[in-house]
Design a protein around this nucleic acid. Structure first.
Lengths: 247, 247
DNA sequence: CGCATGTTTTGAACACGTTCAAATACCGCC
DNA sequence: GGCGGTATTTGAACGTGTTCAAAACATGCG
């Protein structure tokens, strides 16, 4: 599969060879360090998308960026860190496209969820390799960790904004936004392994789910619905989970 | 973390050494093959629980069972396979303890969920390492895969039996049992990283959740509830997911 | 320039999961 | 016992992610 290597002669200290010269053109006012880092990340994401995360080795990435293996680790402490960089980039991109506030609640929620799916479609193969970690509460790169808290809060805020037309009290909106974010995570889980054309099956599931859930939203404004929200917040609080309002 | 090894002298072809003699006493009417397999599994699970899955190497397992590395792979094709063996054992154990049919629906469901948590408590450290794979639909060892289908169906059947007193139509019971199984998976996800004494937080969450949900179950019997069930089944069907009735 | 100090780069070494050809044990049959 | 075939066992080798001491480069200062 790879080149055969010689029996590793234990003590073969050669003098350093001259490094291969690969262009890494800097951008405006960019430090050399930042240029190298950016190029490394670009090549890594390209490889991830072409071959998948698992199949891309750190040696591949380093070679594609014209660096040695160790240099790659100098800029990113682990392969995961490169993956997380993608995660952040994706969330920033979606905030730009899906945050419009016109239309009905149903339309706005549909736009957010469909946009999310569309934005990750090119990276499905890649996400399939890491989504397992996303849903692991113990993983520092997981969607629930404190490290990714900022990204998560921004994502939840988008749902909260989409709920603005409902007239529900703020606390209820916050709870519902959290629930919708969880729903989105579940949709991603399904989408990543959906091999129907354009992921039509998952998109259809999103629409069916929203058609079912959105008409029920006003019920959360009734006394009974409020009581349920209170109890959910109470139960989660007792379990040590804090539902923070969106900023 | 592990012992440092010497510089790996590259070309040290020694003749075969005599194998270390470690007792593997057979049980009644057991083939030698089965004895070795059983001992290997026992030692592996013990190591998993003491040190966690990640920290336990296949070399450790082989050594603990008095085998060489290759021999371990002769019996189990991968480390995962050893983990899956635990999964099956655990499910078989819980079926014995949690399948009693007396008490109210609330009591029966509580018994099933609490028993599940109790049964995995000794293995929390171990599950923390594999639960990520459990929730990955693409993983052959995941809870959703066809390979684990038999175990999953048995687990869902337990919930269906616990719902018998509700008087809901069979189809509704089936849907609800699937939903409860999903809920159980979520509880496991929480439980695995719950460091409160005896996992009290998660157990409390289970009770709070059931207190909230069980009183709503009769609503599923109303025409509106029936309609929702129909639509859920329809949506899942269009998405290519089949809800199979328990046997 | 010479030298020191910090930044970047290098590749060998490490432990891991897994594979495999070969060696050894086992067992029925003569 | 000896023979032949199967079952089991062995450990070196492979490719992987990651670490690390040292080398190479950059920059500031006399």
């Amino acid at each position: 599969m790879t080149a055969r290597r010689r029996p590793a002669t234990a003590t073969s200290r050669k003098p350093r060879r001259a490094p291969r010269p690969i262009r890494r053109e800097p951008r405006d006012g960019e430090r050399k360090r930042d240029t190298t880092r950016r190029v490394l990340l670009e090549r890594a994401l390209a490889l991830f998308q072409n071959r998948g995360v698992e199949a891309t080795t750190m040696r591949d990435i380093a070679r594609a960026a014209g660096l040695s293996l160790g240099a790659a680790y100098y800029y990113f402490p682990s392969k995961e860190a490169l993956v997380f960089a993608f995660y952040e980039e994706n969330q920033a991109a979606i905030e730009l496209t899906a945050a419009r506030a016109d239309g009905t609640v149903r339309e706005r929620l549909g736009r957010v969820l469909h946009a999310k799916l569309d934005s990750i479609r090119p990276h499905r193969a890649m996400l399939a390799a890491i989504i397992q970690r996303l849903v692991d509460p113990g993983d520092p790169l997981g969607a629930f960790s404190t490290q990714t808290g900022a990204v998560r809060q921004r994502a939840i805020a988008i749902f909260a904004r989409a709920l603005e037309g409902t007239g529900l009290p703020p606390e209820t909106v916050t709870v519902t936004a959290h629930a919708l974010w969880l729903l989105q995570l579940a949709c991603m889980l399904v989408f990543v392994h959906d091999n129907s054309p354009d992921g039509a099956r998952t998109h259809g599931l999103v629409d069916d789910g929203l058609d079912l859930l959105v008409p029920l939203l006003p019920l959360l404004g009734t006394p009974a619905g409020q009581a349920i929200c209170e109890r959910v917040i109470g139960a989660l609080g007792r379990a040590g989970m804090v539902i923070a309002p969106a900023p």
